[in-house]
Structure formats: structure tokens, C-alpha cells
Amino acid sequence: MLTRANLFGALVFVAVAISALFLPPWLVSLATIAFANALVVLGLVILWRTGLVPFGQALFYAIGAYAVALIGRYTPIRDVFVVVLAGAVAAGVVAYVIGFLLARYREIFFAMLSLAMSMILYGILVKSEALGSTDGFHVEAGSFLGWRPQGALRNLALFWLVLGFCAIAAWVVGVYFRSVAGSMAIPMRDNEIRVEFLGLSVDRLVHLKLVISGVLAGIGGALAALAVQHVDPQMAYWTTSGGFVFVTVLAGAGSVAAAFVGSLAFELVRSIAVALLPGAWQLILGSALLLTILFLPEGLGSLYSRLRRKPAAPKEQPGGPS
């Protein structure tokens, strides 16, 4: 069963990778950003399964992006694999350090504290006139192990790079979900004390989740910086975090794949809304979100399981009496 799921996932990724050759270039660029953002969403799914929702995940996203941009600005290193890993490490280290504080918080307080952290980074970036303040600055084009594609080829290469990272992340997160630490998510949301009675430290489990989601957001930010070729403090602003939470709820916490489908769907809906009604696209976006929440309570991911006439997993716990 597990191997079948993995095999199926691998097939889908290969199919998507090949299809990029035949897709119009604008769609490839849009999907590149959508999938880079999907990594952040994947990190949020990990936290959400435990009932935690940070309103400041853009903190790690911006750190990953700025790490790539700063390396390009101040060092001769251009290799995309090196810079993306550097972004991941930078975000991971920050997540580890502030995790000591954040892991003690739950519910809305967790959300607000992470919001405060990201807004402090935003304030610092806006103050950094050497880095262009709110205008941000250009990110140097990367090389792929010495290969420097140009133009359309570069966009394809970037898409495959993003896809590669997505495949690895999806696999790793899948493994994590089935591990002891990962499978504690739902029990932790339902009742932390019972989990502690099992001899596990809840704070430590949360800390681990924070680091994983921070690393994922860092990779997402690093890839987005390479794709957009520009970074600015807006990447750390709370509306960016809000956008990620938005996509997470749209996608649902049901499965790993939902994060990618949800992120792509979000970018497409937004892009179509902007093209159709340039003056009222927020109205369309808001309505789409509202309808999803009302009629697809478990997110887009549940569509698939519904079609297969199976109950969606994991079961949503009503927020009422417990």
C-alpha cells in the first residue's frame, strides 16, 4: 500500500515534469511559483494537523529568500542547489532557535507570537536601506551544477528544480506522517496530556514540527526568490502569511498531495480573477474561499477521497466541547 502510493506519486511527478515541455511558458512560470509556495503550505499542513496555525510563517519564507538573494549579492556562489540548501539551513536554524519559545504556545497565542516574530523581521528589512528597503533587490540568476540556461530554458530548468524539491519534500513528509512523532499529530490536537502520559514530550514534538515546517518554508522562499528574481520585505509581511494559511485551508490537511493541488488551484483562480475582473478580483477570491469552506469542509483534498466514496482522513474534530 505504501509503496503503491509512492509509486503513484512518483508517476504523477514524472508526468507533470514531462508535461512542462508542452505547456505554454506562462503556465510553467505560474506553476513554478505555485509549487514553491506549496512547500510552505506543506509545512503549515504539518502544524495544522496538530491544531497549530502560525500567522507568521512568512518569517521563514522571507529568510530563505533573503539568504539566496544575499549570497548572490555578496559571494560568487551561484549554484542553485547550494543556495537553496543555504536558505533551508538559515530558516531551519531560526526555526530551531525561536522554537524554544514558540513550542510552549498553543492556539491563538501561538498564531499571534509567530505573527509578532515575522513583523519584527519585516520592520528590520524595511529599515535596511542598504538592501533597498521596501523596494527590495534583484536576485542573481543561478547555475545548475555549472550549467547556465537562458530564457525559456531557464524557466523550464527552474520548474524542474522546484518539482524535484517538491518530490523530495512530499516523500519525506509522507514518511514523517507515518513515523511515531508524525502520527502523534492528531492525538496531540485532541489531548496533549494523554500524549504526555505515553512518555512523549509534547513541546519537543511541536519543536520538531516547527523546524520541519520552517525548513520547508525556507526552501519555498529560496525557490520563489530564484523564480521571481527579486526579494522584498513584503515577503515577511502578515498578508503573505495569511495567504499561505488561506491556501492551507483551501487544500485541507488530508494529504500531502492536497498542498500542491491547492496551491496551484489558488494561483490559477487568482490569475483568472485578475484577468476577468481587474477591479474586483478579491471578491472572487474571497467567495471561492468561502464556498470551499462551506461546501468542502475538509478542503480540496477531500474531493478525491469523496469521489472514491471513502471518508476523508484525518477526521476533522469539531471545535466545540471536548
Binding site: V53, V245, P318, G319
Partner: peptide, 17 residues
Amino acid sequence: GRDEVVIVLVTYAAFLI
């Protein structure tokens, strides 16, 4: 009765509209 975060998102959607 739904998850708190879902309700936050509902108000966010209403805000966008």
C-alpha cells in the same frame, strides 16, 4: 462548531469580499 482557524479564514474571506 468548526475549527477556530477555519472560522478565522471565514472572516478573512468576508474581509476580502
